[in-house]
Amino acid sequence: MSDPSSINGGSVVAMVGKDCVAIGCDMRLGMQALTVSNDFPKIFQFNNAFLGLTGLATDVITLSEVFRYKVNLYNLREERKIEPETFANLVSSSLYEKRFGPYFVGPVVAGINSKSGHPYICGFDLIGCINFAKDFVVGGTSSEQLFGMCESLWEPDLEPDDLFETISQALLNAQDRDAMSGWGAIVYIITKDKVVKRLLKTRQD
């Protein structure tokens, strides 16, 4: 367990619905088997884009601040909000910049384009290769469990309430089968004119 991407644990998942997207994460921060904190959210908002970051916790914090800095500069230069597609490319190029000494992360981006209203999600590997998914993306130590859950629960064109139930059940049941994830969960349901953040009541073990 000296693999940097599974020292601290944690997982994220994002899904597309009908004119909405959802992104969720667990709340655990650990050092190998020892849980250090149950208040470690892994989703960060940058204007119209939401970024889920799993992997090595030090890199999660560093990158979230790097992107805060870069998005602030974007806002000053462009005098407009960053869209999810643009942010995804920013994430990709920032990660590839560290091609031979990478950040040990598994990022996921979700959001709705404020101009077109199109839902957008994507995932990345640690050096920034983008996975453009139409349905769902997963990341973190319970990614196998999340793949199994999402592949069997997800269906096209879910309304926001149904999408919330689907992503929550996928996340909760996946993290309950992973010792490195859990200890609380957060889910964001994003529609064109509203963002709802929910803290889920979960098993604490």
């Binding site: 196998e144 469990q145 199994g148 859950m149 592949e151 929550s168 909760l172 049941n173 979960t202």
Partner: peptide, 19 residues
């Protein structure tokens, strides 16, 4: 091989976990 993919689904749909 795919036990880790199927098992949480079974927890949810057979034993109704988190419902």
């Amino acid at each position: 091989a795919a036990a880790s993919l199927i098992m949480p689904f079974l927890d949810n749909q057979v034993n109704l976990k988190n419902q």
